[in-house]
């Protein structure tokens, strides 16, 4: 190795090594990116199917694509993608919102699409590892806000609370009216808390 202070040859060597590393990463990314995107889409689709009932799954096939992170056949279910800041980075969530009637608040199911939370502490939000989120399926926003925080994982828990609130805010009556304009609503409209 070259010893002593950094000479211009050393700096050139460093730049060349960094550029080679960068080029290698770009090349591998170009090869793997389409496959990774396909895997992520399949994961999201499987998650969506697991959240919807059989009838709703049939309706899902009639829906073209996500619009502003919202997907719905304008019936009695809504899927919303939300992202909240967790302890170690953004937590991407898929929320299923089901309004019943005007007198009852809508109920939420949350699942995590991607997270970077600490294993053993904040990864309880991963439904593959822990039943924390499946056990809270059907909770209302009010129930989420009243839930006890988890000691040691407060930041992660707060992110879930914010996600539940965001879902309710995103799906106000105006948004739903805009989203479903031109479509015949098939069911009752639920009240948003």
């Amino acid at each position: 190795m070259n010893s002593g202070a950094l000479s211009w040859q050393s700096i050139l060597s460093l730049v060349l090594i960094a550029a080679t590393c960068g080029a290698a990463l770009v090349w591998i990314n170009e090869i793997t990116a389409p496959r990774i995107a396909a895997q992520r889409q399949e994961q999201a689709r499987a998650l969506m199917r697991s959240l919807l009932q059989p009838r709703q799954q049939i309706e899902l096939k009639t829906v073209a694509d996500w619009r502003d992170d919202i997907l719905s056949a304008c019936t009695d279910w809504w899927l919303i993608r939300v992202s909240e800041d967790g302890y170690a980075g953004p937590i991407e969530l898929l929320a299923h919102w089901q309004p019943f009637d005007a007198n009852q608040p809508g109920r939420i199911k949350l699942r995590v699409l991607k997270h970077l939370e600490t294993p053993g502490i904040g990864d309880f939000i991963d439904h593959e590892r822990d039943n924390y989120l499946p056990d809270r399926d059907g909770a209302t926003v009010a129930q989420w806000q009243a839930a006890d925080a988890l000691s040691g994982a407060t930041v992660t828990f707060n992110a879930l609370q914010r996600a539940a609130a965001t879902v309710a805010q995103r799906l106000d009556s105006e948004t739903r009216a805009t989203f479903c304009s031109g479509k015949e609503s098939l069911t009752t409209t639920g009240a948003i808390e």
Partner: peptide, 26 residues
């Protein structure tokens, strides 16, 4: 013979990080 001695550790970490990221992507 090309890695400057005074900056060898950042160079090693850069190279290891590159291979780690490639592994993660694959």
């Amino acid at each position: 013979h090309r890695i400057p001695d005074v900056a060898r550790l950042p160079c090693f970490v850069l190279i290891i990080a590159t291979f780690t990221t490639i592994t993660v992507m694959i």
